[in-house]
Computed example of a mutant assay.
Amino acid sequence: MQNVLFEAFEQLLAARIEGAIAAGIYDKGLETIAADSMTIAERRLIYTHPVTGAQSHLLTIERRDRNAPMWLKDVQSLVRQDPRAKLMINGKSGRPAVMVPTRSIMLDDGSIQPRVSLIRPMDELRFEVRQLEETNWEEADEQAFVLAWNTEVASVPEFSTSMMHIVSGLLLPIWKLLPQDFCRVRRLQTDDGERIVGRVIAPDRLAGLCRNFGIDQTQVLTGDQAWTALVDGSSIVGLAGDMTLRRVRVMNEYRVELTGFTDGTRDWLRSIGLFSEMINWKLRFFVPTTDEGAGILSKLMQRHRLIDVARRS
């Protein structure tokens, strides 16, 4: 009975893992990135802890991978094993592919939408059946397919070079400033033996990360300059961590208010000189509009870097 239970559990676990892999959400834990070659093309300091001095860096890694195209004999074996497989050629680009059915998806209305997978020499494309009809993919005879497949395989270079970005070093204090999707930690070792552990940043999230840490700025304002822009009411100051400073009118007097703070930063904000008030049942923080204001803003900017100074409309 125990063996039967264990076998049933292993089958259920294997099914869950296969489903997660197919959906692209399977997390193996601390995975190692492997490549034929990895070198650091650029290293940028993005954060220094004010107490310990520990640093966080944004690394640009140049990686070199050996290409492994799918050979024609493997394609022919796949076609023999699956009678539903079809040989396809794109009428516009001339690229070949083997079309096989893949997992269907359920739409919001509960209907099932069948999909197909187009297996190519170096990648795989997936389409809904109705979308495929709007493309230039057409069924081809074997002779034309073999010629197109062998031609593309022969044109594949031995190695491919790509760039990847990873934030390494001290991660926990800046975790909320990093992209909140695909929060996976990876490790790698460069050609010169340096071992790196950090968060891989997707290319479409790189611009947002640079804005959070202010490293895409060509001009850096001092605390005094930012304070002057706030006090005269001409500008709004944005800080990393979705914090914003602006001049507001409260109880017939002008103040400089900080918004976007979190519950965990309340005590720290008070310790550097900000004061708080309950107004209409809401906690609000303000920077004193005295001679100490510029110094308090500078302390705030040491922990939450200046991102933007926008003119008020």
Rank of each mutant, 00 (worst) to 15 (best):
L170C: 08
V237S: 09
W71S: 15
M70Y: 05
L258Q: 01
P101C: 10
P121Q: 07
P288T: 14
L230W: 02
N3W: 06
R63V: 09
D36T: 12
L59I: 13
D232A: 10
P157N: 06
D263G: 13
E124G: 14
A54Y: 08
P114A: 00
D216V: 12
R80D: 11
I112M: 03
E138I: 12
G24D: 06
R266V: 07
M163S: 15
R255I: 05
L170Q: 12
F275A: 08
Q180K: 14
K299S: 10
H304R: 06
T135R: 07
T135Q: 07
E277Q: 15
A34G: 04
D263N: 12
G241A: 10
G24K: 11
Q143K: 13
A68G: 10
K92M: 07
V237I: 15
M99I: 10
Q217F: 02
R211W: 06
L245P: 00
Q2W: 08
W175D: 10
K73Q: 11
E292N: 13
I21F: 02
A22R: 15
R249P: 00
T222V: 05
R16D: 07
A41F: 01
R195Y: 08
G29C: 06
R305G: 01
I296G: 00
K92W: 04
V153E: 05
I236Y: 01
Q217H: 14
G29E: 01
L221F: 11
F159H: 12
W71E: 15
G293C: 07
G91L: 07
P203M: 08
T259K: 03
G94H: 11
Y47Q: 05
W137P: 01
L221C: 08
V129G: 02
N150L: 12
E134G: 03
L170K: 04
R187H: 11
L78F: 03
V256S: 00
R186H: 08
G260A: 10
P101T: 01
M164I: 14
D263C: 06
M243G: 02
Q76D: 14
R305H: 09
M122R: 13
R195T: 12
F6N: 14
T228I: 07
S271W: 03
A15R: 09
L59C: 04
D263Y: 05
L230R: 02
V237E: 02
V220H: 10
L177T: 02
R44N: 06
A229P: 00
I21D: 00
C183D: 12
T265W: 00
I307H: 00
S298R: 10
S104G: 11
N252E: 14
A310Q: 15
S298N: 09
W268R: 13
F6G: 10
T259Y: 07
L274H: 00
K73R: 12
S313K: 11
I46H: 03
M106Y: 05
S104I: 09
S111Y: 05
T135F: 05
V116N: 02
A41R: 15
M278G: 06
I89H: 03
H165E: 04
P69A: 13
G241Y: 00
M99F: 04
W281V: 08
E133M: 15
L306K: 03
R303P: 06
E138T: 14
F275I: 09
L206D: 03
A144E: 14
D267Y: 02
A20D: 08
A294E: 04
A8F: 03
P96L: 06
G233Y: 04
P121D: 03
V248F: 01
N136V: 13
I201M: 04
L188M: 12
W149C: 10
